[in-house]
Design a protein around this nucleic acid. Structure first.
Length: 429
RNA sequence: GGAGGGAUGCCAGAGUGGUUGAAUGGGGCGGUCUCGAACACCGCUGUGGACUUCCAGUUCACCGUGGGUUCGAAUCCCACUCCCUCCGCCA
């Protein structure tokens, strides 16, 4: 959420930003509602003051035993009360409306974010590693998975429908190894505290994390009770300190959480239908930072660096891409994606997104009321939040299987994962 | 699932319709005392909004959340959420 005062005082900038973001938001309506609200508020508050004074006077009269005078005074106050409740109701509606519209305004892009209408304008920042040259025709992961009998698509679909599958045997173990290894590196080497959060949250928590109201269509939820299934650990992690005021000395806070993620993927119907790249249920290890405002960009680099390091340790070639304004999304002020190289379906090779690291600045903080105090007695300020995948084991399964496949159809297990697989070095039929 | 109890400021805990934004105690901060510290004493100690701007004020709202009753609600009524105790069931 943006600061209403900021919008009011920087209308031109906000509108220009929306154009760059290639999106729309009801700025004019917001400004109008804001003006109406303040006008009405002034009026209501004046009346309330009148009532407060009048009511106290009645109290005094009653105490002095002047019943008759008190009664006439009451008559007056009844009218006043009616007027107040009438105007308050109007005010309430305006405020609800205003709040609602405000929830649809995206975060402002940070200065320096490359401009562009869509992802074709994202800017490659750097590359690491060399895409592998195959002296045989590499197979896509779904063929490898079936040949090795470690991914079973048919039976996943049988019980749950399209975009479901199951891992089997070493497939399941490799997946688990990735998760455990990611968490261990994060906790032991990157300084994170591990969190095991709820996977279902209240609607309000979704709003606070900026996933509602805008992305309702991509979410699963219980229709009888107020439970919403998270699409990422970012949701519960944003809510950990909701409505709290932290001390500056507690910052920065680095949390890592491994959770399942549920997404309806309605928007991308028909895309990536083969394989396990885009599915309704997947796991993710997510990094999340709470920082001082002035330190958040340094933390963005740290998060990207952490994700990169995981790829390096796995020996997977990747590139870092800075996301342009038109592809930034709703909450990020600045975002880097990590794309890992995979040979893909035809062996031509493609860059597959495996991590998205964002500086959300104070956008979620304002929605979730996440604040800190610089020192005792100081005014609370909104802190900054950042998130980044580190990493999604499902997508990494694709990268590992496809990149480490051998001519005979077996797959070499990356060295760092071997201790998690009983020292095993390959997956073989 | 059944029965009961509860939710007040950083914490503990009063308050049951009329200067109560809220007693009292603790904690924290500042000061006096002291060579210094402890003790003691004194003072201060919430958030958000609107308005004015002499940056010092004025004012409104907030005692789990949302409604209602009333001239007036922390206090009465209703619904919801959460917590606790007991019983039942259970991974």
């Amino acid at each position: 959420m943006l600061d209403l005062n900021y919008i009011r005082q920087n209308v031109a900038e906000v509108k220009a930003a929306l154009v760059k973001l290639n999106t729309e938001a009801p700025i004019e309506e917001i400004l109008q509602l804001d003006q109406q609200r303040r006008d009405l508020l002034k009026e209501v508050e004046a009346l309330r003051q009148e009532r407060n004074v009048g009511s106290k006077a009645i109290g005094k009269l009653m105490a002095e035993g002047k019943k008759a005078e008190a009664e006439t005074q009451k008559q007056h106050m009844t009218d006043l009360g009616d007027k107040i409740s009438q105007l308050s109701e109007m005010l309430r509606q305006i405020e609800t409306d205003l709040e609602d519209k405000l929830l649809y305004v995206p975060n402002m892009p940070a200065p320096g974010v490359p401009e562009g209408a869509d992802d074709s304008h994202n800017v490659e920042i750097r590359r690491w590693g060399e895409p592998r040259q195959f002296d045989f025709k590499p197979l896509p992961h779904w063929e490898l998975g079936e040949k090795l009998d470690i991914i079973d698509f048919e039976r996943g679909v049988k019980m749950s429908g399209t975009r479901f599958y199951l891992f089997k045997g070493l497939g399941a173990s490799l997946h688990r190894a990735l998760i455990n290894w990611f968490l261990d590196v994060a906790v032991n080497e990157h300084g994170y505290t591990e969190i095991y959060p709820p996977f279902m949250v209240r609607q309000q928590a979704m709003v606070k994390a900026a996933h509602l109201p805008k992305f309702r269509d991509n979410m699963y939820y219980d229709t009888e009770e107020d439970y919403w299934f998270i699409g990422t650990a970012e949701v519960p992690l944003t809510n950990v300190f909701a409505d709290e005021i932290l001390e500056a000395s507690q910052l920065p806070i680095r949390y890592v959480a491994h959770t399942p993620c549920f997404r309806r993927e309605k928007m991308s119907a028909g895309r990536d239908v083969r394989g396990i790249k885009r599915v309704h249920q997947f796991e993710k290890v997510e990094m999340y930072h709470y920082t001082l405002p002035e330190e958040s960009y340094a933390h963005l680099n740290e998060i990207v660096g952490n994700a990169e390091r995981l790829c390096q340790m796995l020996g997977l070639p990747y590139r870092v891409v800075e996301i342009c304004t038109g592809d930034l999304g709703f909450a990020a002020a600045k975002k880097f994606d990590l794309e890992v190289w995979v040979p893909g379906e035809n062996g031509q090779g493609e860059w597959m997104e495996i991590s998205s690291c964002s500086n959300v600045t104070d956008f979620q903080a304002r929605r979730a009321n996440l604040r800190f105090r610089r020192e005792k007695g100081a005014k609370p300020e909104y802190l900054h939040t950042l998130n980044g995948s580190g990493l999604p084991p499902g997508r990494l399964m694709i990268a590992v299987l496809e990149n480490y496949q051998q001519a005979d159809g077996s797959v070499i297990i990356p060295e760092v994962l071997r201790p998690y697989l009983g020292g095993r070095t390959e997956i073989k039929k």
